[in-house]
Nucleic acid binder design. Sequence first.
DNA 1: ACCTGAACACCGTTCAAGT
DNA 2: ACCTGAACACCGTTCAAGT
Lengths: 197, 197
Amino acid sequence: MPAKRPPIPLTRERIIEAALHIADGQGLRRLTMRRLGDALQVEAMAIYHHLPRGKDALMDALAEHVTAVHAEPAGSWQETARAWCRASRAALREHPGVLALALTKPPKGRAAAAVREQIEQLAEAGVPDAPAAVRALRAYVLGAVAVEVQQSGWAEPPGGDGEAEPWLPPSRGGGSAEADADFERGLDALLAGLAGA
Amino acid sequence: MPAKRPPIPLTRERIIEAALHIADGQGLRRLTMRRLGDALQVEAMAIYHHLPRGKDALMDALAEHVTAVHAEPAGSWQETARAWCRASRAALREHPGVLALALTKPPKGRAAAAVREQIEQLAEAGVPDAPAAVRALRAYVLGAVAVEVQQSGWAEPPGGDGEAEPWLPPSRGGGSAEADADFERGLDALLAGLAGA
DNA sequence: ACCTGAACACCGTTCAAGT
DNA sequence: ACCTGAACACCGTTCAAGT
């Protein structure tokens, strides 16, 4: 009989990683402290040692993880804004399971810091009302990703009756290349609008 | 001892109304079949008679309720689109407790029908790629309301430590008049962009 | 047809106890 | 310091039973 493997130590990072995997794979409603414990080969109660506020802390951490992005200032403020928006979209699309949290919870911790940094960068680059600009950019990204993920049918139960109700005709191929183009086109329009304010 | 009141009959409408009241007042996580039963003066199990798929059906119904809006065609397609967007924003803002569902669940039933109707109206008014236009308008409204509700601090637990972290400076007065102006301004820009495509 | 009561499997969280 | 086991209050849902 082989000896029991020495258990990998539990960390905040490993917990969050496993939680994202469950949420993305089975949906947020099935992300459970006990299931999370199973995935980590640990009793559920062990998680409380690393996330003292329990499931609320976990939800906050997940929202933060998917929302705390970073981008460097680029040539023009438009390029800077574009970099932020692309990074945000990528991070949100990577984890559709926790999108509801990102859309709903006000930024905290590193996520709030990221928003403040973005405002600073745009203000420094001469954008007149930088907070309003960042609000508009955030709204654009959140809305675009929400619609993308809705249309992808991610939220539908996997055991559906064959085909989902086509509530919107797919962009063209339904692929993400078309979605990328849509996103960039809308972003250009928004940046033009912000410049002409 | 006064006689027991004849109980008001349970209906789908009353159930949804009570569920919205709980979700808006205490948050979606506290919306529970048993609590919902209490609010309706009924055992939780009675709800299943009106919503056979149980809590999933309830969630679907809530998303539909807050998402199935209607608007009549107006003078120009821009005015038509504006009417749809204003109606959608109003409906979503009225029930912040179920906003996560509206942002996340693909439209079904009357909500999907509303989207199709909106596409038809714009197509009939001569908008070239009406489905793409409606996608963009939907994204705009969803994102705008998401940011508004985040900024309102609605999701914060009521028993906070005095003041929430100011992750974004308030628009100016923090009031909804400023938010209304922001919304209309962004909408104008988007409509201009859609026209110039 | 509509609602109840009891039951079942599961959930979040606490706390004393182990190592 | 880190994890476990047992316990508690609560949850969604089924089903037979009442009216």
